[in-house]
């Protein structure tokens, strides 16, 4: 690990100012990606600005027909929240399958989506549930938030403070985990809303994406059979020693059908 200056943010404004002023500053949320990267000397930030200790970033609350989850809420808190389990059980289920217990006890919603790892689970939920990402500066629609591999719409100094998840009629998340890391090789989140169906795929491509052919078919007939003949194209999908693009494309279909079946 290289040396860096450590700051514990006292307010969100304070954190925002610090990461704007310092040349190579990084925010620390759960640290589940950042800390291993530092330990392997793969990153050399000048300053770390710690968001732990800001209570306004924490917590889960119901607001009308949405569940609003603070950015610093741990995965385990989402997984075990009675509110989330009741309102959007698929989201609690997703959180309960992120990484392992150690990761779930440290990792946060805001950290996960701000990092936008192509194989992270949460982006699929944010997109499929048509969530709104709330930052210290504005509100960003899910479809506009995830820009590409490790890239988001966040601007310098912008910090995710919460995510508002509208309650779907039904939803489910099916993940085919990387056998070693437990990240998603393919994760498909299917959500049926009043105004349509959204199918978000994580792990398969460089960034979470919507499978619109499936969405259209499911809007007409929300059943696994309805998407049986829809093949995910393998062009542009990820490939590694665990799964080729061809296999990932195949798994998108399998996981989508299973998600639809699980959503009921």
């Amino acid at each position: 690990m290289y040396n860096f200056e450590y700051h514990k943010a006292k307010t969100i404004a304070d954190a925002s100012a610090m990461i704007t002023q310092k040349s190579e500053a990084k925010l620390v949320a759960g640290g589940m990606t950042l800390i291993p990267t530092l330990k392997l000397r793969l990153a050399k930030p000048s300053d770390l600005v710690d968001l732990n200790g800001l209570p306004e970033l924490k917590g889960i609350k119901r607001e009308g027909s949405a569940v609003v989850i603070g950015a610093m809420t741990r995965h385990v808190e989402v997984a075990e929240s009675a509110e989330v389990q009741k309102a959007i059980p698929a989201l609690a289920h997703l959180a309960s399958h992120i990484g392992d217990p150690a990761v779930r006890n440290r990792g946060t919603l805001g950290g996960s989506i701000s990092n936008n790892d192509p194989v992270a689970d949460y982006p699929a939920a944010v997109v499929a549930l048509n969530a709104t990402v709330i930052t210290n500066k504005r509100k960003i629609a899910a479809d506009a938030f995830f820009k590409g591999m490790f890239e988001t719409a966040l601007e310098p100094g912008e910090i995710v403070t919460a995510v508002s998840f509208p309650m779907p009629e039904k939803a489910a998340y099916m993940k085919f985990p990387n056998p070693a890391s437990r990240y998603a090789i393919v994760g498909v989140f299917v959500a049926k809303h009043k105004d349509g169906v959204r199918v978000a795929v994580t792990g398969a491509g460089p960034c979470v994406f919507r499978q619109k052919d499936m969405e259209a078919a499911l809007a007409k007939n929300f059943s696994a059979d309805a998407i049986k003949s829809i093949a995910q194209k393998q062009d542009g999908l990820n490939g590694d020693i665990h799964a080729s693009p061809e296999y990932r494309a195949h798994l998108v279909g399998v996981m989508a059908r299973r998600a639809v079946a699980a959503a009921g």
Partner: peptide
């Protein structure tokens, strides 16, 4: 070495 950590080496 492609499987150089537990992220890729599947125990």
């Amino acid at each position: 070495l492609v499987t150089g950590s537990f992220m890729d080496y599947r125990m």
